[in-house]
Amino acid sequence: MSMWSAFANPLKFLRLSDWLAPLFYAASGLCIAWGLWQGLWVVPKDEYQGGDIMRVMFVHVPAAWLAMASYSALAVASFIWFIWRHELADIAAKVIAPLGAVWTALCLATGSIWGKPTWGTWWQWDDARMMSVLFLFFLFLGYMALRAAMDTRQKAARAGAILAMVGALNVPLIKFSVDLFTSLHQGASVMAAGGPKMAAVYLWPLMISALGHSLLFGALVMTSMRTEIRDRRTARLRAAALEGGGADA
């Protein structure tokens, strides 16, 4: 509890993010640049994965990782806000949603671009990962649409938190059902075997790229949160000024 309270102080957050966000930007730039350089020029192409097109992996896999990580972050922030009503948690949830949606869309787009030459199709309803990521994208869209439809900030926060938590409860079930759906339609997928089976020459640039994307995500979340904090402060000051003006008149 006391730990959360320390994080919940907007002033402390502004002071912390003042130097942490630029650091994240710089580090993410280095990581992504190194990962892309390795991925695009240095590592050998894998003919089995479609030749040069497999290099899109160095964007696709980090995007897939962030799609999942950002929805988890959204759910956690919503939960914290719903229980402890720390405004920073709501601010975080609000700014995470559009950023997460962008990375999820990036994952879908790069996956399609990779899929067309290797599998011969832009989209495959039989692939569990595609379907899961698509539904994740819809969860983000629903969350943003619901927040946008609410007429006050407080209502947007509460409605959004309820929806994000319901969505998070459903994600395992959606994942399970989609896996079941697709495992019956086709055998083992032809997509790249990930993880430990991957040669170290691919693994390192991939990990560094994923780290770079995560740092960029963190930096963008911090910047957006700073903007949102100031937006809310501006709104409060403006409301106070209006009230004062009304009393004068």
Binding site: L139, G142, N170, I174, S177, L180
Partner: peptide, 16 residues
């Protein structure tokens, strides 16, 4: 709005 919110939640039931 209901459609956008609820459709992802319909997925498991529709599949099963």
């Amino acid at each position: 709005l209901i459609s956008l919110i609820a459709l992802p939640l319909y997925v498991p039931t529709a599949i099963f």
